[in-house]
Write a protein that binds this DNA or RNA. Structure first.
Lengths: 341, 341
DNA sequence: TATATTTGCTTAAACGTTTAAACAAATATA
DNA sequence: TATATTTGTTTAAACGTTTAAGCAAATATA
């Protein structure tokens, strides 16, 4: 079996005895090409099973119509849903996306960025890895003049477009809810402080405690990688305290799941003994026993907005000066793990 | 802010007063270029922050070094893990991957295929959508002479490389295990019969019943889309039977989860009243209460093998005649939902 | 010393498209 | 009728690489 020669614009031109330029224009519905020619060109294109060579057109036009996406992982509902909604909008505008995963590793993230730049993407939409502190690679994207849009895990210092939720306020909502349930010693298993969103959640937690005149106890505030495994560990740590908390607010659902497992294994009653709240509203939060109260981050909306912000950039040829900082209002979904009354 | 002109091979050539061709060769370590020149070229490339234009080289060389991936969804552990492992191997060989999701929709799958062909990928690795019966779009890939590798959800008729597990035998393992636990009326919530893997699981189930002298009861064999929602529905259907099963083997973990939810809600004891077995060994199978017995599909290995098979094709320039059909041996992970003794 | 080979580069074409500029023919305007 | 405009096309260059072919200089071989 030999490789078939692909049909090009030239082949169509030869059949019709017109120039390749005319064919190109006909296929793009140029106003200066007669209806007759357009029809003929399209017919021949179909007959010869013509597929435009994207590489050639991208090279010539200086844009690839590809958008690079970097996420810590695809197998969480949050990221997968963001991507799916983003993709839909971008596809409609003729863009395709290249998804890459950092697996929370700084090094992989850097590789991903290089890969995407190498592939000549027209823009990058990203959510940063847990490990990432050094922003130099993201600066590299900016310095190439390629639109960069961050969502969820972003950084203020980078001064780029951002779509996320109001993390600070979300913490307030959670603490408020727990106080209403009668909780007095509320612990927080937070994410890494160096990540803005987790820092905001911590700040919100601290300030909300103050607001409700609850004392801030340092042993109740833990920093975690927020994996299921680390959630288990940190929960064990809290249970080992002399003065145990009566509520635990975990900054991520996967870690909350780990905490729940430990509580279940120890036969600690939820929410009577300890109330539990997660963050992210992953589908499993509703599936486990007891179901976990969590924060809905509006993943679909985040994906759509990110796509739209990119498209705004793409339409202008100079880099946009005005930054888009879109903060969506999150929603508390109350479930069995914290519903006392 | 104005868009910066990107550094090209020509710029480097101008700096050093040599030809662009020499630069290209120097960057590729051509043996006919002196060490001195190579060193100089690489230094200048670094200074000018040169990034090769992938589009141009892909156009010229007639290959994009991109591999397209089509999966029903990325937010299951199975697919995400397959992709991650595939990616690692392909990246090492200089390939990048473009991930697309069909969301189990035939139409989206066709679009994905068109998109990938349009992007001039060098090969496609795919797992088919649930809806897909018409194979014409996959034939299209083959007819373009582009390597196509299927995994998990594949089709025999297509006559392409395939990597999967021994579904038929897995069903035998499950039935055997349930029989050992003392179950006598084993139901099967299976996937769509038209999909080969699900068909094989059904055949395995039927044959294993025969082997153990259990009667085949048609009301115990249901066809399902295997979503969590449908799992709930089919479980309710089984519970409504006059003569209830004492074990349920579900062909997918998500549907098994739905079944579990229903059983928990009805306070039916697992595994005493009804034993439950899923398929796929999604992480949540170990997380829920009770944990669900399931089949480990070796996602990492599938991903690696798929990548390797693609690379084999890529190395030859004519299409390989000998087909790779790689069938991995799956593993039964026994958990609380079916452990009676 | 004359000839062959190797080394290190250049030239020029090619990949398949897009597009500015040119141009002839058809049509409109004065 | 002469001139201007519009219509429909062609020409040719460009996008940034790669690579076959060519060529001069350096080196090896006889």
């Amino acid at each position: 079996m030999v490789k078939k020669k692909k049909t090009t614009i030239k082949d169509i031109a030869n059949v019709l005895n017109i120039s390749p330029a005319a064919v190109s224009k006909a296929l793009h519905d140029d106003s200066r090409i007669s209806k007759k020619t357009k029809k003929a060109v399209k017919q021949v294109a179909k007959n010869l099973n013509y597929q435009p060579n994207h590489l050639a057109s991208a090279l010539r036009r200086g844009k690839s119509n590809l958008v690079g996406v970097i996420v810590p992982r695809t197998n969480s509902h949050f990221f997968s849903s963001v991507i799916q909604n983003m993709e839909e909008i971008l596809n409609n505008e003729g863009y395709n996306i290249i998804i890459t995963q950092s697996s929370e590793s700084f090094k992989k993230e850097c590789n991903n960025i290089d890969t995407l730049l190498f592939t000549q993407v027209d823009g990058i939409i990203a959510s940063m890895a847990n490990e990432t502190v050094d922003l130099q690679y993201f600066e590299k994207i900016k310095s190439k003049g390629i639109p960069l849009i961050l969502f969820d895990r972003g950084e203020n210092d980078l001064n780029v477009d951002y779509i996320g939720i109001n993390d600070y306020d979300s913490s307030h909502m959670i603490v408020e809810h727990l106080v209403q349930q009668g909780c007095k010693r509320i612990a927080h298993i937070g994410g890494y402080k160096h990540t803005r969103i987790f820092n905001n959640r911590i700040r919100g937690y601290v300030d909300a405690l103050k607001k409700h005149n609850l004392p801030l106890d340092n042993e109740l505030l833990l920093e975690s990688s927020l994996t299921t495994e680390d959630g288990r560990e940190k929960m064990l740590q809290l249970l080992a305290l002399e003065n145990r908390p009566d509520a635990v607010y975990v900054a991520g659902d996967y870690a909350a799941l780990g905490a729940l497992q430990v509580l279940n294994e120890r036969n600690i009653k939820l929410p009577q003994d300890i109330a539990l709240v997660g963050f992210g509203n992953e589908p499993f939060a509703a599936m486990v026993t007891p179901s976990i109260t969590s924060i809905n981050q509006h993943s679909a909306e985040i994906g759509k907005q990110a796509a739209k912000v990119f498209l705004e950039h793409a339409k202008k040829d100079t880099v946009n000066q005005s930054l888009n900082k879109i903060i969506l209002k999150a929603e508390l979904v109350i479930r069995d793990s914290s519903r006392l009354k």
